[in-house]
Amino acid sequence: MKHKAKLGQNFLVDEAARHAIVAALGDISQRTVIEIGPGRGAITEILASRCKRLIALELDRELAPELAHRFRDQPNVEIVEIDVLKSDLASLAPQDETADVIGNLPYYITSDILLHLYAAAAQVKLARAVVMMQREVAERVSASPGRREYGLLSATTQMYARVENLFTLPPSAFSPPPEVHSTVLRLEFAPRFHELRVDAAGFDAFLKQIFAQKRKTLHNNLRAAGYSTAQLTHWPTGISQQARAESLTLEAMAELYRALSKHAL
């Protein structure tokens, strides 16, 4: 079967890599696993024999029925033909347990899928995710404050999860080979909103505002977002108004958000 470029299909063919990716989930014998984009089933095959329940979400109208037929005799495997961005991930796991997520994320919608995962994790339904993505995107996801790669995706991810960079695969690990290297990350979901004393919806919006123009200062981004001069006079003394968002830790961002929110008009 030909791959479909518009779906970002580059199928994993490296034997050691597919086993390493599944192993990164840990013991899944009593757990539900949600697989995003199983493709030809390279990882699905291993998961099916190891996890308590497997729900594989496949958008491709040709691959989904092929997978359903292939795993028809394994009652713990469910193939769902759906766009992951339109799925209700939080409802897929049984009500009394959480689920793990695994998948090779299409390069062109990696950020969208990650945000979809975080929205589900906020409902306390997801425990961890082992996800593969373009190396450059993985560097942004895991970047620390002060690094050039640090931005909105970094801060948002690190509000929802602890990030661990596991390993990077060359183009030759896939068929057809992509033009980029791919990195596997493990995300342990642990939202920090309560710890940092911020509300999720408001702080998510605040992050978008302060990262709106990365080269602008915090003060200028917030002025452009509609914060009044009166509000901005309550700026915390330990944070420079001329700093840029990429230089701030999540703790400092939360402090700034709390200070300005107290004086919202």
Rank of each mutant, 00 (worst) to 15 (best):
E15N: 08
A24Q: 00
L187P: 05
E78F: 07
D60C: 06
G41H: 05
D199M: 10
L126Q: 06
E188V: 15
F211E: 02
D88P: 01
K6T: 03
L57G: 02
F211M: 08
S91K: 12
G37N: 08
M1T: 01
S247W: 14
T249S: 15
L7I: 04
K262E: 10
S111M: 10
G26M: 07
A68D: 11
E195R: 12
R31F: 09
L185H: 05
L265G: 15
R128H: 06
I21Y: 00
A190R: 11
V101C: 02
E78S: 06
R128Q: 11
D100F: 09
D112K: 10
Q134N: 05
L265E: 15
F174Q: 00
R70E: 13
D73R: 08
G37H: 05
D204M: 12
H181N: 14
A48Y: 02
R215D: 14
P178G: 04
S91D: 13
F203W: 09
S261T: 11
I102K: 03
H181Y: 14
S142H: 09
A205R: 13
W235N: 04
V163W: 01
A5H: 07
S91M: 12
S172M: 07
A212C: 14
Q74L: 09
S228Q: 11
A20T: 06
R140D: 05
R135L: 07
A56L: 01
E62W: 13
L63F: 09
F189G: 04
V137C: 00
I28G: 03
L265S: 11
T237L: 13
I79E: 06
A224P: 10
L207T: 08
L265F: 15
K52Y: 05
K6F: 06
Y107M: 01
S29L: 06
S228G: 11
G146T: 12
H3L: 05
S228N: 11
A200L: 11
V163G: 00
S182Y: 07
G26A: 04
P65N: 09
I239W: 12
L89E: 07
R147D: 14
L89Q: 04
P145E: 12
E15P: 03
F71C: 04
L105E: 01
S247K: 09
G202W: 15
P65G: 10
Y257K: 03
T233S: 15
L260K: 02
D199N: 13
I43C: 05
A68N: 11
Q209G: 12
H116M: 00
L185N: 06
E139Y: 09
A252G: 02
I82Q: 15
E179V: 11
